[in-house]
Design a binder for these strands. Structure first.
Ligand code: MN
Ligand code: MN
Ligand code: ZN
Ligand code: ZN
Lengths: 126, 126
DNA sequence: ATATTATCGCAACAAGGTCGCATTATGAAT
DNA sequence: ATTCATAATGCGACCTTGTTGCGATAATAT
């Protein structure tokens, strides 16, 4: 299962990188030049996640958002990013607030995945 | 639009209360005695939310979970609960960790809704 | 008891995401 | 350069979660 370099993967990664934010599937499809199938986009994104190049967040709208990983060592499927994400209710932007958050859990609880989203109005929209 | 007391509302609220956790639609349908239609359950739950009796969390599985509000003054549709929720990857339980969390946002950002979920293994499953 | 209308049940719908499968095209081997 | 194995794609079908329209039912007030 060695990865291949395809047009799709290159373009999708480029869109994610140049955006700098977390993007949903349809945001990616809009910002992309060529026509790439929905299923392909999801498959590419999930592959990126497996490879530790990208992480996924579920928004409070129930949609999946994908953002490039920074300082992400592990290549595991689940690389926990314990930072907050902010989703603007006006412009739709979803960004990673890179400041890490220490979350205290009760005794005996083991955290595997952090999915922290705050929605509201961003600095450009408030 | 005055609310009426129906079997459905009573039963659903009772299930939520006796459970003590945040429940998804299908969890409610399982734990309920009678047969209540899916659409009705959602409508009842959304009414509860509007009335400030219940709050909703989107899990990292993309599903909606509903939990009874404690210390919730406002009757607004959006009553922000800035506490963490924990979803157990083994037993499926979703609970409100009632300890409030102070989240620092960058200048100019206005928080409206908090959707904070950590998944992993609870004390009974770790 | 009657009237009003909030709520219900059912079916249809919509959105987001996944999967199976035949086809394409990447990267390695010759 | 050609051939080969198979990763990746496109398309359609499918699934799950949740919402909506509408006629039927039942909760409350008079
Ligand atoms: Mn992030
Ligand atoms: Mn809660
Ligand atoms: Zn904005
Ligand atoms: Zn558990």
């Amino acid at each position: 299962m060695k990865r291949r370099n395809t047009h799709s993967t290159a373009e999708i990664f480029e869109v994610l990188k140049s955006s700098g934010n977390a993007l949903s599937h349809d945001m990616i499809q809009e910002n992309i030049g060529s026509d790439i199938d929905r299923a392909t986009i999801y498959r590419v994104l999930n592959r990126f996640c497996e490879d530790g190049k990208v992480h996924k967040v579920i928004g409070d709208d129930g949609k999946q958002y994908f953002a490039i990983c920074h300082n992400c060592s592990g290549k595991n499927q689940v690389h926990s990013h314990n930072h907050i994400h902010f989703r603007c209710l006006h412009c739709g932007k979803v960004e990673c607030l890179e400041r890490d958050l220490a979350v205290p859990l009760p005794e005996g609880y083991v955290a595997k995945v952090h999915n922290l989203v705050i929605s509201g109005f961003c600095n450009s929209c408030s």
